[in-house]
Simulated assay, not measured.
Amino acid sequence: MKVAIVTGASSGIGQSAAIEIARRGVGVILTYGNNPQGGKDTVAVIEKEGGTAVALPLDVGETGTFEGFRDTVAGVLRDTWQRDSFDYLVNNAGFAQTSLIEDTTEEMFDRLMRVLLKGPYFLTQKLLPLITDGGAIVNTSSNSASTATGLEPGYSVYAGMKGGLDVLTRYMAKEFSGRGIRVNAVSPGATRTRLGDDAFTRFPEVVPALAAKTAFGRVGEPDDIGKMIATLVSDESRWVTAQNIEVSGGYNL
């Protein structure tokens, strides 16, 4: 059985990606941050559908914990799947915080940088020896980093870090190609997740305006993105690498 690691899978896009990947017959190691119950819920859904999953705690903003996490992963692989490697890595964990440039603090900037860019960089570095040749990596980016029109004030740091992740995706694809490891990114548009302190629930009035900017007339749902991630790590996408695929339903089209 092939095995995937999906970070930030206690809710939203990561949860959907973990479930969709498991539905394709892949074992899943999923991580959670401050929502352990969400991690358990994701495992429960996967197991109910006949899959195998293990939930582990991980703060992607704390690089000092990555070596210990790698050792834990190695133990889980051995005990659960009798393997010493895994096949797919989905760097999804993250959070959103907005602030106008004139109001942004260094603390906020550094926190977003640690989670959205530094974390995926060094987590991938630590886990790379465990990834099988011919495996796949998907990084969750954002269309806020690539859109040329309709920029929303307040996203300079968040989008800036996601833009860095887009560049990192291409360099990973180049450097890992010798081992046949494919690396791609997905860039969701407005998606109904818990990002921004569950902003969609707290501010439901923003949904109609976002839907009006989208060609298909609605905001995205986690499953819209999760299915694309599952497709990108699968063999169906074996000839796709170094790509950033916007999954936004035609936002600003």
Rank of each mutant, 00 (worst) to 15 (best):
D59H: 08
A9T: 05
V138E: 07
G25Y: 14
R24D: 03
T72L: 07
G119L: 09
P208F: 15
R192S: 08
N92H: 04
V45Q: 14
S141Y: 00
W81E: 00
D133C: 09
G12T: 10
F109I: 07
T80Y: 05
T31R: 04
T42W: 06
K213Y: 00
E49P: 15
G150K: 09
E49L: 07
T98P: 02
I29H: 06
S177E: 06
L130I: 00
G27T: 03
V167I: 06
D84Q: 11
V26L: 10
E47K: 15
V219C: 13
T104I: 05
E221W: 01
D133L: 01
E107F: 14
G8S: 05
E175F: 08
G61P: 00
K174N: 09
A44K: 15
V6N: 06
G25F: 04
T191I: 04
S16C: 06
A209V: 03
A9M: 11
G38P: 13
G217D: 02
L128N: 08
I29G: 12
I229E: 12
A93K: 02
S146I: 09
N143E: 08
P153E: 12
A17R: 05
M1G: 11
M108I: 05
T98V: 09
T147P: 15
R24W: 11
L58Y: 06
F95K: 05
K118M: 04
F176L: 07
T149W: 12
D166L: 06
L58R: 04
L112F: 07
P120H: 14
G249N: 00
T201F: 13
R182A: 13
A44W: 02
S156R: 03
S10Y: 00
E205A: 12
G189Q: 03
P204I: 10
L232N: 09
S141P: 02
E246S: 08
V183H: 14
D223I: 12
V167D: 05
A190L: 11
V186T: 08
R202C: 07
S248T: 02
A18N: 01
R111A: 14
I225M: 11
Q82W: 02
E221Q: 11
I137F: 07
G220F: 01
V60L: 07
E246Q: 14
V115L: 11
G154I: 01
V3M: 06
I19F: 04
A136C: 00
P36V: 00
E106L: 05
F109N: 01
L232Q: 02
A9N: 13
D71V: 04
L56E: 08
Q125C: 02
T65E: 14
K48Y: 08
S99R: 11
E152R: 04
A9C: 10
A148I: 10
V3H: 07
F86M: 04
Y251N: 05
R179C: 04
D84R: 12
A212G: 01
Q97S: 09
V26T: 11
S85G: 06
A136V: 00
G160L: 03
V115F: 10
T65A: 15
A18D: 12
Y251R: 05
A9K: 10
V183W: 13
L112D: 10
M228S: 06
L56Y: 07
S142L: 05
G8N: 00
P57E: 04
G163V: 00
V76F: 09
I21E: 13
N34S: 09
